[in-house]
């Protein structure tokens, strides 16, 4: 057994590849993450080209051109702000509704994008990726590039709204980065796991769509969970609420009200991510061509 493993290592060093039914099964979560990272690195040129091409496709043939790529990501935020502005809303946690909503919605779209994009990419590009021998991870990452761009546009809008509303930020706003990172790891893990399961059980994507429609209202994104009465008791059980409210509190309150829940969900997120990356890496070649 040891000799066989040594041979395999030597062969890999020589540029030898072996494909068999149990390929990749011996890798653990960390090794899977490293392998996926290597795939992404090897196909970085393709990812860049694909993103550029998709980005241009977003405005090709329009009169206003690239303007649309900046406007469209802001639309959801502006809609929610408009809705709450139609009537006089109370200030949430000392913040104006515009700041509260734009901040939360920006994070919400980032996190849900990390769940939805892998599902959609695996579903739509599985067969094409098989034919071009490009790993699905590369296609997913190129779709994240668009998500990142949209998020940066929304962040710019949030900054403008914060300045316009003169909302005071605290030094603890620096913690937003690790909080968002933890939340992203959690959601990406969820997205990778569900993207594979959705190929087998096609109801998953529809269920996720429904859950996220309700989720935006049940995660304190548009208004605080406290305003929903008894549901406030579940606030710590909802990871989205924990991550988003922690980021918001870090930015504007100077302290985090649920540090225990945040730590717990961060640990869950890391474990889920490692497990999902491993599952995704193992299953990727098995689901190839079976999405249609």
């Amino acid at each position: 057994m040891t000799e066989k493993l040594l041979n395999t290592r030597k062969e890999r060093a020589k540029g030898v590849r072996i494909y068999r039914p149990d390929s990749r099964i011996r890798q653990n979560g960390l090794q899977a993450v490293i392998s996926i990272s290597r795939e992404i690195r090897n196909f970085r040129s393709h990812i860049t080209t694909l993103f550029t091409s998709d980005f241009r496709k977003g405005y090709r043939g329009t009169v206003l051109g690239i303007f649309w790529n900046f406007v469209l990501p802001m639309v959801p935020i502006s809609v929610y702000i408009m809705l709450v502005s139609l009537r006089i809303m109370p200030r949430y946690e000392g913040l104006s509704p515009a700041v509260y909503i734009s901040f939360n919605v920006t994070i919400w779209f980032l996190l849900t994008g990390l769940i939805r994009q892998p599902i959609q990419v695996v579903k739509s590009k599985n067969t094409e990726m098989m034919k071009t021998a490009i790993p699905l991870s590369a296609a997913i990452v190129s779709s994240f590039a668009q998500l990142c761009f949209d998020t940066f546009v929304r962040i710019a809008l949030v900054v403008v709204i914060i300045l316009a509303m003169q909302a005071a930020t605290k030094w603890t706003a620096l913690f937003i980065v690790p909080i968002i990172l933890s939340a992203s790891i959690f959601c990406l893990g969820l997205g990778l796991l569900l993207s594979i399961l959705n190929v087998i059980y096609r109801d998953i994507e529809r269920v996720i769509t429904i859950l996220l429609q309700y989720g935006i209202f049940l995660s304190g994104v548009i208004f605080p969970l406290a305003s929903l009465g008894p549901l406030v008791s579940l606030s710590a059980a909802n990871p989205f609420n924990v991550f988003i409210s922690s980021a918001r509190e870090a930015a504007f309150a100077g302290s985090i009200s649920q540090p225990g829940a945040l730590a717990a969900w961060t640990v869950v997120g890391v474990i889920l991510f490692l497990y999902s990356a491993w599952f995704f890496y193992l299953m990727e070649y098995r689901i190839r061509g079976s999405s249609e």
Partner: peptide, 16 residues
């Protein structure tokens, strides 16, 4: 070409 996995057996390739 490594585009799909076999359900049995093995492919060994040495090189690009």
């Amino acid at each position: 070409a490594g585009q799909i996995l076999p359900d049995g057996g093995e492919v060994w390739i040495n090189g690009s």
